[in-house]
Design a protein around this nucleic acid. Structure first.
Length: 307
DNA sequence: AAGCTCATCAACCGCAGCCGT
DNA sequence: GACGGCTGCGGTTGATGAGCT
């Protein structure tokens, strides 16, 4: 038998809140304070469940909320905090006064994940901090549509993938390759990455044509949000230098003429175009060694939304 | 202009952790 | 320690409006 519901739902209202309901809830909480969510709707005379009241208050009615667009500073903060905490939205929200976890989660899933996707895949010359959010509304690039997500979920879209670990339910975030069974790897993944590059010979004319994410999953090299971390600056420099050599070897051209394969977008970030790979996967670098001393190099693995 | 597709935001759902009994 | 209720969190869905064809 399943768990009993937290509240009696028969006869309770669902869906959008009306202005009157908002008013009733606000007045009640102003008079009696927050808490006792279960009994609150009955006491306040609302035909809602306690959870719904709590959510409405926390995400919308609370007085200390900032409404409106995220600022550039908030953008940067969210990216940084997401890097540190993963999808722990409440933790992220606690560092952003006036913003709720729900708001940040929505913002991440709609705007920021798309910015990062576009940044990594080189679909535009943007940096993570120079996105014109208004303009983005006109550019439908990079987000995984629910139609595609559903298709993957229904068809078992990953079954052709080499890894049996991959979940198909996280398509809207860049850190989609997520498996809760994978034990977070503390420490450095550079050896595994270098090993992978050597073993798999991913480079063809300087651009990888396949990234076997299963390789990293099998070695438990990724943290739960699908990020590989490399701490060693020297190792990073060496990796990039090796790649340069490979590129020159394959192309016999000036490294500076390379366009999307490696492109510096800012002092703190580096885009790496490993486009069009066999398993519809992307492979990108960020936080390269030109950033402040001690910063890590992160490699994100995510599914391409445009198979 | 109409229909379709997609982005955004608010809200719901299920689960896990905490706490009191 | 076991159990059950409450709360908070993260994932997901639905409604709506804007953009595209």
């Amino acid at each position: 038998m399943g768990r009993a519901p937290c509240c009696e739902k028969v006869g309770l209202k669902k869906g959008r809140w009306t202005a009157e309901e908002d008013d009733t809830l606000t007045k009640y909480i102003q008079a009696n304070g927050e808490g006792n969510w279960k009994s609150l709707p009955k006491n306040a005379g609302l035909l809602r469940c306690g959870k719904s009241c709590r959510l409405r208050w926390i995400n919308y009615l609370r007085g200390d909320l900032k409404r409106g667009k995220m600022t550039l500073e908030e953008d940067e903060m969210i990216v940084k905090l997401h890097k540190a905490f993963g999808n722990r939205w409440s933790m992220i929200a606690s560092h952003l006064p006036g913003r709720t976890d729900n708001e940040i989660k929505n913002y991440w899933n709609s705007c920021l994940s798309r910015q990062i996707y576009r940044f990594f895949t080189g679909k535009s010359g943007v940096t993570l901090t120079s996105i014109d959010v208004d303009n983005q509304k006109k550019q439908r690039i990079g987000r995984v549509s629910r139609k595609v997500a559903k298709k993957y979920n229904n068809d078992g879209g990953f079954k052709k993938n080499k890894s049996t670990h991959l979940l198909a339910t996280k398509l809207s975030s860049p850190s989609v390759i997520m498996d809760k069974q994978v034990v977070p790897k503390k420490g450095d993944c550079s050896t595994i990455v270098t090993q992978y590059v050597e073993e798999s010979q991913v480079y063809d004319n300087g651009v990888s044509d396949e990234v076997d994410i299963g390789y990293f999953l099998e070695r438990e090299a990724m943290d739960p949000s699908g990020v590989l971390t490399i701490h060693d600056d020297e190792q990073i420099e060496q990796m990039m230098a090796e790649n340069d050599v490979l590129y020159l070897k394959n192309n016999e051209s000036n490294i500076d003429e390379r366009d999307d394969d490696f492109s510096f977008s800012s002092l703190k970030t580096m885009g790496c175009g490993f486009d069009e790979i066999e398993w519809d996967m992307g492979f990108g670098f960020t936080g390269f060694n030109t950033c402040d001393e001690g910063d890590d190099m992160l490699i994100w693995l995510w599914e391409d939304d445009n198979p």
